[in-house]
Design a binder for these strands. Structure first.
Lengths: 100, 100
DNA sequence: CGTGTAAGGAATTCTGACACG
DNA sequence: CGTGTAAGGAATTCTGACACG
């Protein structure tokens, strides 16, 4: 299910190059619960390409004036959407099993 | 044609974690022409997942006692294989165009 | 040939805080 | 609330070189 896109291997400086967001902003979005980098043994943050994409979405929202808290709500709902989708998938699988 | 796998965004420390190869070895394989990282503006090396995979292959070859020069030959031939494959693809495309 | 290591410097990252608003 | 910045320290990376073999 996961792949290179989800491997957390990008340091904050590179994320800055990729997204245009300052390290300060990137760290702040973490304290606000929008993003969850891994850490190396000594604490350096590591991000995935998925994280980078999310940060770019966050940047867009912020430019529209959306506050971090609201963005967090949206992300929460989106996750719920994914969960529902997976549950629906499971139910369908069970249904199909009984059908045959 | 390219994707996340080919984006050069991984620093040498992370590559070390991922491959188990020492920074010294990783740099050495570069001087031997086996691997070609990008650089940040100030010279820090950046690798792709493809590079990481290649380094693991190189590590295997080295364990078998294959010298870097020989590994380079193999890589050269492999590239040639890719080129031929692409040329063949183009020829086939032209052939098929005339067929119809 | 391939890799380790000590050396010295430059650039990176981290945290907590003050600033503005 | 969101972001910049100066501060001080710790960890990273870089290059050129000596070592062994």
């Amino acid at each position: 299910m996961s792949s290179y896109k989800d491997k957390k291997v990008i340091t904050i400086g590179i994320v800055n190059e990729l997204t245009g967001l300052s390290a300060r902003m990137i760290r702040y979005y973490e304290t606000r619960g929008l993003i969850f980098p891994d850490r190396t043994p000594r604490g350096t943050r590591k991000y995935s390409f998925t994280d980078v994409e999310l940060l770019m979405e966050i940047a867009d929202k912020r430019e529209e004036g959306v506050q971090t808290y609201e963005i967090k709500q949206e992300l929460r709902n989106r996750k719920k959407g994914v969960r529902d989708h997976m549950i629906r998938g499971q139910l369908n699988a069970q249904f199909n099993m009984r059908k045959h």
